[in-house]
Design a protein around this nucleic acid. Structure first.
Length: 286
DNA sequence: AAGATTGTTGCTTA
DNA sequence: TTAAGCAACAATCT
């Protein structure tokens, strides 16, 4: 699933492809994924490509912003030289859930930008693209918590985010209003590195654990970025290549395998209704 | 074939 | 009053 490193990787690639280009056509194949009037975007020029939390923000002229949430299975695929006319685009390689041609059965929106086309695919129809004014965008972004790569993600602010809640630390890490951009993969991996049991109530972590976890969150997110994100399931880059962080997981999706540090068997439990992976040997509940 | 899975929202419960 | 728990969403896999 696209989390901070995955969305950031897409942002960097996409920026190179579409910055300063004009949107000339918007094709909405699934209204739920693009509820607003697509005509409001046509003719606008892309002046910035930004990210906040797991949101991709495409800033346009006339104070308009396209906000994209990829949710569980969203993909953004860029084709710089699509064939003229309406025929399907044949891809160089077969991509899982996409197949060999674009648009595919999971394509929900197609943006024509300059000479290229940007395909928004989302198999499950949870993801969306919204059009917001600058004022609406500011308001929307306010509800998100600390951005892990910013300087203000320090020990003090992180400790504050963890007080006053007895929820499991793993659940709090996934709470976008507390910390922005962490999903299931990076929550599990950062807790493993920190030797903290995922079910520990957040307000029972001591200062050393809080700071260790903070440092390891930054560490795993940077590692994810280094490998171009985790193409564990549906995530791919705009150029259709895959990230490789999935080859470096310590616990995520590894129940039944042995821990690389202590040889204990990785366990899977459910917290907040979500799959949670940890090493019972390394991650003790105190 | 019913149930689990997944991130987020919005409703219900405590 | 507010935190916490959970159904719902869509599609796929088991």
């Amino acid at each position: 699933m696209p989390e901070l490193p995955e969305v950031e990787t897409i942002r960097r690639q996409l920026k190179k492809a579409i910055l300063n280009k004009k949107i000339t056509k918007v094709e909405v194949l699934s209204k739920k994924q693009f509820p607003q009037n697509p005509k409001l975007v046509v003719g606008k020029i892309i002046i910035a490509v930004e990210r906040r939390a797991k949101l991709l923000i495409i800033k346009l002229t006339h104070q308009k912003n396209l906000i994209i949430h990829l949710k569980l299975s969203g993909q953004l695929i860029w084709q710089s030289n699509p064939p003229a006319g309406g025929q399907k685009i044949k891809l160089k390689r077969v991509i899982p859930t996409v197949g060999e041609f674009l648009p595919s059965k999971s394509t929900r929106v197609i943006l024509t930008i300059g000479r290229g086309k940007l395909f928004f695919n989302e198999m499950r129809k949870f993801g969306w693209i919204k059009l917001l004014t600058n004022v609406q965008l500011d308001k929307e972004l306010q509800k998100y918590g600390i951005e892990p790569f910013r300087k203000d993600f320090d020990q003090k602010s992180f400790a504050k985010a963890l007080t006053n809640t007895r929820r499991p630390i793993k659940t709090v890490l996934l709470d976008q209003e507390k910390i922005a951009g962490i999903g299931n993969i990076y929550a599990n991996e950062s807790l493993y590195l920190s030797k903290i049991h995922p079910a520990m109530p957040a307000n029972t972590l001591n200062a050393k654990q809080v700071n260790g976890l903070r440092e390891n969150i930054i560490k795993v997110l940077k590692l994810g970025l280094k490998y171009g994100g985790a193409s564990d399931e549906y995530y791919i880059h705009p150029d259709t290549t895959r990230g490789t962080y999935q080859n470096h997981f310590s616990v995520y999706g590894k129940s039944g395998e042995s821990c690389r540090k202590c040889r204990s068997i990785i366990k899977r439990i459910s917290l907040g209704g979500r799959g949670t992976y940890f090493c019972p040997g390394c991650q003790k509940a105190e």
